[in-house]
Amino acid sequence: MIFMKDIYKTYANGVTALNGIDADIKQGEFVYIVGPSGAGKSTFIKLIYREVKPTKGTIVINDMNLEKLKERNIPMLRRNIGVVYQDFKLLPKLSVYENIAFALEVIEESPKNIRKRVMEVLDLVGLKNKARFIPDELSGGEQQRVSIARAIVNHPKIVIADEPTGNLDPDTSWEIMKTFEEVNASGTTIIMATHSKEIVNTIKKRVIAIEGGLIIRDEHRGDYGYEA
């Protein structure tokens, strides 16, 4: 569960990215965040895993009140949230397998469970045969699937994705979306910022539209609503 009340965010350079946001997202929902560039989508998403701290307002994630979250407990928050980035953010010197295993090593999972679970998610994203490759040896779509595998490997309640298909061609994008839908089907909350009108209008889900740091629309089974 994600709950936000009256969130403001002004960056150090004086730019106000969010201007009073309220949001309530239930466990298992699939939500698109849409809006023009600079609207505040990424800022909204970064609040959830505390890459960004709000200037004002209340955020509760999985019953954790982020206002009271201590610095040293931030890793605990992040272990329950899988994050997928537009630029993948894979560790370049580690193999596909090691990149995914890393998310389990930090929670001190046993090597046996790590092996089992990593192979499971590699199977899910269809990359079992590329486990020993390093990220540079993969296509963009494959790298993104590795980062999705890493995001879901420790069974997080929430997976958030910031323009995950932004760097991918349409065919690959649809494959990635299929993977997200599968993850969502298992009960994981998905929050995804996107610029893809086709995706939002085809795979119908809840749509939250942000403009100028405000939520201007929040519809179930909504449309993209912009001319792309």
């Binding site: 890793p75 994050v83 953010k89 560790l91 890393f102 930090v106 890493r150």
Partner: peptide, 11 residues
């Protein structure tokens, strides 16, 4: 890389 590790939940 250290940044990525932290985002994945490494202390």
């Amino acid at each position: 890389e250290i940044g990525i590790m932290k985002l994945v939940g490494a202390t």
